[in-house]
């Protein structure tokens, strides 16, 4: 279908998605942006956040990690560290993990090298939870 946008989401573990979509909204480094077919070529950093798009009249939500997006007029390629669809996220599990991380953080000194990593994980957990509610 030439009048639809091809969306590819690639993580180191697998190719998560590779089909035509009607539009896509990407959490860009400098703010979220939407892409429709015919967009100007662009290369953008992606920050952890919520990605969503329409396909066949349905709106799908994904929680994505850090990465890059390459946009051409008929194709969007996302390179991200992680990517999960909203209905595949186990909210309870994420909550439990979040608590664990919070407890760990509370016990650490502010300048500990672990802190940054844990905070990033916490941020990702929040995004996951938010996205999972949209299922």
């Amino acid at each position: 279908m030439a009048d639809e946008l091809m969306l590819e989401i690639v993580t180191p573990e697998e190719m998560v998605f590779g089909k035509e979509v009607e539009d896509v909204y990407i959490p860009g480094e400098e703010g979220a942006f939407g892409v429709l077919i015919g967009h100007a070529p662009m290369l953008s950093a992606v920050r952890p956040g919520e990605l969503h798009f329409h396909r066949g009249g349905r709106e799908l939500f994904y929680a994505v990690g850090e990465g890059y997006a390459e946009v051409t007029s008929e194709r969007v390629t996302l390179l991200v560290e992680t990517c999960e669809r909203s209905d595949r996220i186990d909210a309870d599990k994420v909550k439990r993990r979040k608590e664990e991380v919070e407890n760990k953080l509370a016990g650490l000194a502010k300048d500990d090298s672990e802190v940054e990593k844990l905070q990033a994980e916490l941020e990702m957990a929040d995004i996951r939870l938010k996205v999972s509610e949209k299922g």
Partner: peptide, 18 residues
């Protein structure tokens, strides 16, 4: 292949991150 791309943030920052 990315001749006249828009870079966001700038190409230097992207490169440094890559």
């Amino acid at each position: 292949v990315f001749g006249d791309y828009i870079y966001e943030p700038s190409d230097e920052v992207l490169f440094a991150r890559l």
